[in-house]
Design a binder for these strands. Structure first.
Lengths: 134, 134
DNA sequence: ATATATAGGTACCTTATGTATAGCAATGAT
DNA sequence: ATCATTGCTATACATAAGGTACCTATATAT
């Protein structure tokens, strides 16, 4: 239906532009998603706790990321009607399922820093215009 | 050194802003990285072959993505000095190692489309300003 | 002569991300 | 009584990333 790949004759295929799985992959393609899901995989947390754990995230990006995760059913948001406000976030079953994979990627990133830093050093002398950015 | 997390007293920690693993995670946070690495995990490919496999990617983004992957030691680029030009790309050992994890995420995206689409439908009526974007 | 294929490059515009600031509503300090 | 503080979010604005469209060079095919 979506796929013409013989390996998945009727399934979803992220390589196809119009496939819904493409939008899921797009949603996951954010360092903040990695880190916020990672932080939530330790357990239920408040907005401020997450902001402290995920260094460098601004309140705006944190709220925005949490809204997207909530919208896609990965995070549950619970509001306590008190002053000052108290809001707690928690991974859903689906979110915990995903967190396992995302944490593996995060761990991979940490494990392979030396090799990648080395590769970057080799590459930088000529600086072949890899857009200078990260 | 980088970490004050008791679980990794002297290692890298992507939650820390200044940690190099943070930049690695940032590099991986791109749907095009997922898809290009995924396409290369089938074997050595040319620019045009990749462009056909990864639907919707523009030549510019494909080249840019490949340059970043090459810079970080995940992809090898081989140029054949012929006319018309012939350039082939191939995953390195490190790249193949990563591809396993990225392909799992891609497979997860495909597997959980129905639940996520359902969650989005539930969320959309009130459209709580999850930035309207994906 | 015109068209096609290959691997890109460049100019431009739009969208996303980041920075900084302001808001609410009650509580505690001055 | 006034003012700052708190936790979470909203808004305005600046910047950087992503996307669109068009261009190059050469060889082969039509």
């Amino acid at each position: 239906m979506y796929s013409n790949d013989p390996d998945k004759p009727f399934g979803y295929d992220a390589f196809r532009r119009e496939c819904m799985s493409h939008t899921v992959l797009e949603m996951l393609s954010s360092k903040w998603v990695y880190l916020v899901v990672g932080a939530l995989s330790f357990g239920r947390r408040r907005h401020g706790e997450l902001a402290r754990k995920v260094e460098g995230i601004t309140p705006k990006m944190l709220t925005q990321t949490l809204r997207v995760l909530e919208r896609d059913g990965l995070v549950l948001r619970e509001v306590f009607p008190v002053i000052p406000p108290r809001v707690e976030y928690e991974l859903t079953e689906l979110g915990r399922n995903l967190a396992g994979l995302l944490n593996e990627i995060r761990a991979w990133s940490e494990r392979h820093v030396p090799e990648i830093v080395e590769a970057r050093k080799q590459a930088s002398p000529d600086s072949e215009g890899a857009s200078a950015a990260l």
